[in-house]
């Protein structure tokens, strides 16, 4: 049975992902940080919403579609990095979900997801270049930016949940 409502909702969520990606591209890079680390990851808020309120599989679908958009817009390398980061972040959140369920807050899920995203990207970049010194070099920065931006997106998620639930549930 095709769930039209769900497909429509996922389509809307995907449109939101695109808009947030474009907004984020238009934002200036934060000073003091290399540009590749100064992305807040606003679009991941949508992925997290889908993860918690639509379905775990659908979160993977959303990550794949987001990566496809990155591939079309910024090329194969960006697409691959977006895909690996996204998949890894959802896997991390899934592991936490099975371990803790409701005992940890959205902010912690978000921080874990953000760090997971960074680590997933970095691992694939290291494999791609076959140079694992990169992992050691970038790891501390990725942990810190993941924690900071993960907190920001987690708070953002908390704000949008009631509004999205009205659309999703109504």
């Amino acid at each position: 049975m095709v769930d039209v409502k769900k497909i429509t909702f996922m389509g809307m969520m995907l449109a939101m992902v695109f808009v947030l990606l474009l907004i984020e591209r238009a934002m200036p890079a934060l000073p003091m940080l290399p540009p590749q680390f100064s992305k807040i990851g606003l679009a991941n808020v949508i992925v997290m919403y889908v993860f918690f309120f639509v379905g775990k599989k659908d979160a993977f679908v959303m990550v794949g579609l987001k990566a496809l958009f990155g591939f079309l817009l910024r090329g194969p390398v960006a697409g691959l990095l977006s895909f690996s980061g996204g998949v890894f972040s959802v896997i991390i959140m899934l592991v936490l979900f099975f371990m803790f369920r409701q005992r940890i807050s959205y902010v912690i899920y978000s921080v874990a997801g953000a760090i997971g995203f960074n680590v997933g990207q970095l691992v694939v970049a290291c494999i791609f270049l076959w140079d694992f010194r990169l992992f050691v070099f970038y790891f501390p920065v990725l942990i810190i930016t993941g924690a900071v931006f993960g907190t920001v997106t987690g708070m953002f998620l908390k704000i949008i949940i009631p509004a999205f639930n009205r659309i999703n549930g109504g």
């Binding site: 902010v107 912690i108 921080v111 760090i115 790891f139 501390p140 942990i143 810190i144």
Partner: peptide, 24 residues
């Protein structure tokens, strides 16, 4: 954010900061 969130994020930030500082 609850107190627990602050503590967990704080620990991650301190760990990352220590790694970064120790390298330099």
């Amino acid at each position: 954010m609850t107190k627990k969130d602050f503590i967990i994020v704080g620990i991650i930030l301190i760990l990352g900061g220590l790694l970064l500082v120790s390298r330099y």
